[in-house]
Simulated scan of single mutants.
Amino acid sequence: MRIVTDSQAVPQVGQIVRILRGRDAGQYAIVIKVVDERFVLIADGNKRKFDSPKKKNVKHLELYQHVATVVQESIEETGRVTNGKLRFALNKFKETLDDEEKGE
């Protein structure tokens, strides 16, 4: 999985991120809303539910090129996404990361 390292990169809804700063550092989440060029709302479906997302500075996130299309389509169609879909998308992403580390 490629990491977007460009500081000018704009996050998009459904994009997978890794949290670099704060209490949740090292954990993965999904962008559910772009507030402005500096801030996004993220959720993971477990600790951070869709109804109570965390507002994070983009500088404190590591952006991956992977976009969870299930999440993106759900938010575009209904304006919401279930916490189950968030968990499913993150688990699927983590599996691909594990496979890449093993060299598969």
Rank of each mutant, 00 (worst) to 15 (best):
D24T: 10
D6G: 06
K55M: 11
E95M: 06
E100M: 13
L97C: 07
L41S: 14
F88Q: 09
V31T: 03
R21F: 04
R2P: 14
E95R: 08
Q27I: 04
M1D: 02
L61A: 10
I75C: 13
P11R: 00
F39V: 11
D44F: 12
V13W: 00
G45L: 01
D98Q: 13
D44M: 13
A25E: 13
K33D: 04
Q15E: 03
N46F: 11
K33G: 01
R48H: 15
E62T: 05
I75W: 15
P53G: 07
R87M: 15
L63Y: 06
E76V: 14
F88L: 12
T82E: 11
K94C: 09
D99M: 10
N83L: 00
E104W: 14
I32L: 08
G79I: 06
I32S: 06
S7Y: 03
A29C: 00
R2T: 12
H60R: 07
K54Y: 06
G45T: 05
E104S: 09
Q8V: 09
A29P: 01
Q15W: 12
Y28Q: 09
T78Y: 14
E101I: 12
Q65K: 10
T5C: 07
V67D: 01
D98H: 13
D99Y: 11
S7M: 02
R87Y: 09
E77P: 02
K54M: 05
D44C: 11
K92W: 11
P53R: 07
L86P: 05
